[in-house]
Each structure stands twice: as structure tokens, then as C-alpha cells.
Design a protein around this nucleic acid. Structure first.
Length: 293
DNA sequence: AATCACGTCAACCGCTGTATT
DNA sequence: GAATACAGCGGTTGACGTGAT
């Protein structure tokens, strides 16, 4: 016999989340921490499947998520990492802790794919393309060779790392030693205020929603006004229950999906990945520094 | 003002590897 | 060891917004 089902599949709600649902989910995470998603619907009364709850949290509600347009440096990192790792969005996202894999995936599909295609078909290096203009100092051929060399170096390092014995010279990093994964252990002990620091996101959302609702419902009956009332109350309560955010705190205590990526992995695998991660990180930031000059 | 086309992105779907019973 | 559910990932979809006609 296997496990009991996580939730009753019948009567599960789909579609966009309402602010009230968001608040219920955030409250749950504040109390129990992220994880145990199967218990969320029963604990909170949300009519959402656990999968949907996890997705909503990791892609939208969790603290430290940066929304809005991507910076040039972020773009370049995505381009480089995609060239190296392929469509491993979760892996790429682990190098951009403020972005979700979904965001990066969307950005790649809607912006960068086109940009690179355009790059291939036109002489972009003589024009002033926005982001990629930073490559102007290097000819396309040079840049491609550099990238290919870096990819080869990375692949070689990965092969070496994987072939090494566990007792080899791989540095004995703890998880928190990994420069690009400073959040992994801290995630587990994230404080209530840290969770709450996403209040801005939700307060904004609530405002938008109430605005939209008030527009939609302006001609409707009193029944809708009670919804409006409860939502406004929820917004007020939610907004007032949190302290202003601390962005440094965000950056050090986020990306649970990246952390989750390593849950259950063996020490050996972790060491191998660690070595590669450190190397990759160095490669990426060195490269970006060069390009930003 | 109406309609169409296109871009964006939140959310869903289906799959895989892992954990649990 | 088998059966089943969970967690996570990447691909895809569809609702919505915006600009062009």
C-alpha cells in the first residue's frame, strides 16, 4: 500500500489566485514554513491542490522575489547559463536568487530567444542593440569562441569533478559556504519577519485587485460590496501586520527551490556540484565584469 | 470606437525521480 | 519489492493588456 492521497481532487479550484487565498497561504507558510504542501489545503481550507500552492508560493509569494524588467547583467547571465546548461531553468534560477525559474523561462521564451535570433540574422555588432550592445567591444566570432571555450572548460571541470574520489582534494564546503547558495541553510530558520517581508508584493496585489473589483462590481448589487469589504479589510490587516522589508535579508534567505534542489542529494553529489558551482560562479561574474567595462 | 494581432506571464499539465507505506 | 503519492521540473496554454489598423 502507498501513501494516502494528498487531497481530494474533486472541487479543487483552478485559475488565478485571489488576494484572500494568497493571505491564507502566506499565513500557513509563516506558521509552518515552506514545505509539507500536501497539508496546506487541509490546514488552510484552501480549495487548491498542494501542487498549486507550492507553485504559487515559489513563483509569486515567497520573499525576495524581484519583479519587473531584467537588468542587462541578469540577461547576460541567463544567456550564458542557458548556453552552458540548456533549458535547466531551475539550475539557472539558482544563480539568480531573486528570480524564479518560471520568470526566467518566460523571459527567455518571450525576449531572449528573439533577441538572439535577431542577433544571428543581423549584424548586431555594428548596431546598438540594447542589452547585447555590451558585447560591442568584442567581435561576434571572438565572443562565440570565448563562450565555447568557457563551456568546454566547465564541461571538463564537471567531468573531472565527477570522476574524483570522495576523499579527493575537493574542498570540504558546507552548504552555507557556497557563495551563490548562501540561503540554503538559512531558509530553514527563516524568521516570521522574513516571510512577511513580501508584504509589499501582496499589498500591491491587493490594491490592484480591489481596484479591479470595485470597477467590475460598481454596477452590481450589495452582495458584491460585502466581498469588497472583506477584501479591503484583509488588505488593511495584511498590510499593517508587516514591517518594512529588508532587501539584504531577502537576498540571504531566499530561493527555496534552489535549496530544495539539493534536498536528498548525497554528500558526494553535493561536493561535485559545489565545485562546479564555485567554478561557474567565478566564470559568470568574471565574464560579466569584463563585459560591463 | 471597434476590432484585430501580438506580447506577456501566471498557472496548468504531464512527466520523472524520490519518499513512504 | 511493489504500489502509490509527493515534490519538483520543463513545456505549454490561455487570459489579459496594449498597440496598430
Amino acid at each position: 500500500m502507498g501513501r494516502p492521497p494528498c487531497c481530494d481532487k474533486t472541487g479543487v479550484k483552478k485559475g488565478p489566485w485571489t488576494p484572500e487565498e494568497d493571505i491564507m497561504l502566506v499565513s500557513f507558510v509563516q506558521e509552518h514554513g515552506p514545505g509539507n504542501w500536501r497539508t496546506v489545503p487541509t490546514h488552510t481550507g484552501l480549495r487548491r491542490c498542494s501542487k498549486s500552492c507550492r507553485l504559487r508560493w515559489t513563483n509569486y509569494l515567497r520573499p525576495g522575489i524581484k519583479r519587473g524588467s531584467f537588468s542587462d547583467q541578469e540577461e547576460k547571465m541567463i544567456i550564458q547559463l542557458q548556453a552552458l546548461l540548456g533549458n535547466k531553468w531551475a539550475a539557472i534560477a539558482s544563480y539568480l536568487p531573486e528570480r524564479t525559474d518560471n520568470d526566467i523561462k518566460n523571459y527567455w521564451n518571450t525576449h531572449l530567444k528573439k533577441k538572439l535570433k535577431k542577433l544571428e540574422t543581423s549584424d548586431l555588432y555594428s548596431n546598438d542593440g540594447h542589452c547585447l550592445s555590451t558585447y560591442n567591444s568584442t567581435s561576434r566570432g571572438q565572443w562565440e569562441r570565448t563562450l565555447q571555450a568557457d563551456i568546454n572548460t566547465a564541461k571538463q571541470a564537471l567531468q573531472n569533478a565527477l570522476s574524483l574520489d570522495k576523499s579527493s582534494t575537493i574542498p570540504d564546503y558546507t552548504i552555507t559556504d557556497i557563495g551563490c547558495y548562501p540561503f540554503i541553510k538559512q531558509e530553514a530558520k527563516m524568521s516570521t519577519t522574513t516571510y512577511a517581508s513580501n508584504a509589499e508584493n501582496i499589498a500591491k496585489l491587493l490594491k490592484q485587485w480591489t481596484k479591479r473589483e470595485s470597477t467590475n462590481n460598481s454596477e452590481q448589487s450589495k452582495a458584491s460590496s460585502s466581498t469588497q469589504y472583506s477584501c479591503n479589510n484583509a488588505m488593511t490587516e495584511y498590510s499593517s501586520s508587516f514591517e518594512p522589508s529588508n532587501s539584504d535579508q531577502f537576498s540571504q534567505a531566499t530561493t527555496p527551490e534552489a535549496a530544495g534542489k539539493f534536498h536528498g542529494e548525497s554528500k558526494r553529489e553535493m561536493d561535485d556540484e559545489t565545485q562546479l558551482s564555485v567554478m561557474l560562479e567565478s566564470w559568470l561574474f568574471d565574464e560579466n565584469d569584463d563585459l560591463l567595462i
